Simulated scan of single mutants.
Amino acid sequence: MSLSIKSIKSLAPLLDRVLVQRAKVVEKTASGLYLPSAASQSPPPEGTVLAVGPGAPGKDGKVVPVSVKEGDRVVLPGFGGVPVKVGEEEYHIFRDAEIIAKISE
């Protein structure tokens, strides 16, 4: 099941949720070789953060901020997240705790 909306700008994550656009599947190598379709079916484990929520309340009631910010490149799990379709593009909403790592340049 996926949610379909008209504009990605109208979507604001709540609490500790993070809106991510997964990296595109590479179908051709840098040297020009085409990869077989079986190799390109699984989504890459990388994405870019587009929007973050304000954070979720901790055990003491204070808001714990999200650990990533807009523009960060992150490593994602191969499963999970809520898919959101905008036109032909697909995005995912993950909990902050589901994001595996942040990629620093």
Rank of each mutant, 00 (worst) to 15 (best):
E105N: 08
G32Q: 03
V84T: 10
K102E: 12
P13A: 09
Y34L: 13
V63S: 00
V20L: 04
L50D: 04
E90Y: 04
I5D: 04
E89P: 00
G71R: 01
S7V: 02
P83W: 12
L15R: 12
L11D: 04
E27A: 12
E88I: 09
A12D: 08
P77M: 09
V63A: 03
A56N: 12
L15K: 13
S31A: 14
P36G: 01
Q41G: 01
S37C: 03
A38L: 02
P77F: 05
E70R: 12
P57Y: 00
T48A: 07
S2G: 03
K85E: 15
L3R: 12
V64C: 06
V18H: 03
V74D: 02
D72L: 00
S104C: 00
I93H: 09
E27N: 14
E90H: 00
T48Y: 05
S2Q: 14
V49L: 06
G32F: 04
G53W: 05
K69P: 00
K24L: 13
I93F: 01
D16S: 11
G81S: 10
V84S: 10
M1G: 15
R73I: 07
E70I: 07
V66C: 10
E90W: 08
V75R: 08
E27V: 13
L15D: 14
S7P: 00
E89V: 13
E46Y: 14
E46W: 13
V75L: 07
V25S: 14
E27C: 12
G55I: 02
E27W: 10
P77K: 09
S4W: 03
S2R: 14
I100M: 14
V49E: 07
V52G: 02
S7I: 01
F94K: 10
G32L: 02
V64I: 15
G78L: 13
Y34H: 11
K9T: 09
Y34K: 14
S31Y: 07
P44K: 03
S7W: 02
A39E: 12
V68Q: 04
I5V: 15
V52K: 03
K62F: 01
I103K: 11
V75T: 08
G53V: 06
E98P: 00
A51Q: 08
L35A: 01
K85A: 13
P36F: 02
S40C: 07
E98A: 15
V26T: 13
L33D: 11
R22C: 04
S2H: 14
D96T: 10
A51L: 01
S10Y: 03
G80Y: 10
A101W: 05
K69N: 00
S31N: 12
E70S: 07
P65V: 07
V84P: 06
T29V: 09
P54C: 06
V63W: 04
S67P: 07
G58V: 01
V68R: 08
D60K: 00
K69F: 02
P83S: 13
E46H: 10
V26S: 14
G61T: 06
L76E: 06
K6V: 07
D60W: 03
M1Q: 11
G71D: 06
A30L: 14
Y91L: 12
K28T: 15
I8T: 06
G80C: 11
E89K: 15
L14Q: 14
S67M: 06
P13C: 06
K62W: 00
Q21Y: 04
D16E: 12
K9V: 04
K28I: 13
